[in-house]
Nucleic acid binder design. Sequence first.
DNA 1: CCTGTGACGTCCC
DNA 2: TGGGACGCCACAG
Length: 119
Amino acid sequence: MPKTTSSVANSPKADRSLDSLYARIYARVRRIPAGRVSTYGHIARLVGGCSARQVGYAMAALPEGSRIPWQRVINAKGEISCRKHGNGADNQRARLLAEKIQFDSKGRIDLRRYGWLSH
DNA sequence: CCTGTGACGTCCC
DNA sequence: TGGGACGCCACAG
């Protein structure tokens, strides 16, 4: 009975609502272990159906004091992405340093060493 | 509805 | 190695 949309699984629209998408992004970020990092693009690729920008948007939407390890998500160049407002970037760097992640002289993280990819 | 913006990424020089 | 152009797309006003 294709007419009655009682089956949520049969409704791509409902199954991919923003809430659900953000939830999947956060679930993925939560699995990044301390001392490792992933990238916006990689998360987007794993979750599917969204772009790197949306992952960044999901991170920005997190409330202060969230338990999600948002600091472990950086950009594809291994840098901490700049924000328009606030000093979140400094906060992020401090958090990562606390996890023993090392930065090179240009403030970048070696993804070959710390990247948590294909997970 | 249209426009500007942004926690991105890839390509090109 | 670095920096600019573009593509991308949800969101706010």
